[in-house]
Design a protein around this nucleic acid. Structure first.
Length: 201
DNA sequence: GAGTAGATCCTCT
DNA sequence: GAGGATCTACTCA
């Protein structure tokens, strides 16, 4: 199992990176506990030209500053006052690309995830949806700006990759306000995986 | 089973 | 002062 190198994140094709993230392992070492999950759903946010992105129009604020950092860091922010959403920042300095991790398949530390989320037993909702998976992995705004090349949070390749046929794309979720950009097929997910959010077919 | 309200708080205008 | 890259529970049928 290999931690992804910085060069993986600093490339400029956020859609390509998003596709490649599928099948990788997201690992957290927080609270002296290790938890990990296989990424099965992501959404790409294509920088300043993307109306659905917080960085649209090169809007630069305290919150979005993390996205302008060099790729390979975590961008975590609070949504609806309740949910912490975890993103991977990509591209070079001052190019605010990001990839939202929307769903995982639990791999290690399931007991810990259950404890964190207050669930009694494993079900598909444990790591389905960005709010839930952040909770399960112990991610919060405290981890905003963490480097993915460190040990606390990182993404690893254990040799498993999905085939092209297994990867589906669709418009993103929850971004209706973004006008025509809401229609862009920037969401990628593994076909027929029960952890993928949205409506089961 | 489908539709909707409520939670809850940080960020930006 | 408004609203958001969401989720859950509750209503109603």
């Amino acid at each position: 199992m290999e931690q992804l190198p910085l060069e993986f994140y600093t490339r400029n094709d956020v859609l390509q990176i998003a596709r490649e993230l599928l099948g990788k392992l997201l690992v957290t070492n927080l609270d002296r506990k290790t938890t990990s999950g296989r990424i099965v759903e992501v959404e790409a946010y294509n920088g300043i030209v993307d109306k659905a992105s917080h960085a649209f129009g090169n809007r630069r604020t305290n919150r979005t500053e993390t996205m302008y950092a060099e790729g390979g860091v975590a961008y975590v922010y609070l949504c609806y006052g309740i949910h912490h959403l975890f993103n991977v920042v990509t591209n070079k300095n001052n190019n605010p690309h990001a990839i939202l991790i929307r769903a995982l398949e639990p791999v290690t530390g399931i007991e810990t995830m259950l404890k964190r989320t207050g669930k009694k037993k494993l079900d598909f909702s444990l790591t389905r949806g960005p709010g839930n998976l952040s909770k399960a992995l112990g991610l919060s705004t405290l981890q905003n700006g963490f480097k993915l090349t460190d040990k606390a949070i990182y993404i690893a390749d254990d040799g498993i990759a999905f085939t092209k046929r297994e990867i589906m794309s669709s418009p993103r979720i929850g971004v209706e306000y973004a006008g025509e950009d809401a229609l862009l097929p920037y969401r990628f997910y593994k076909k027929e995986n029960p952890y993928v959010s949205g409506k089961p077919k």
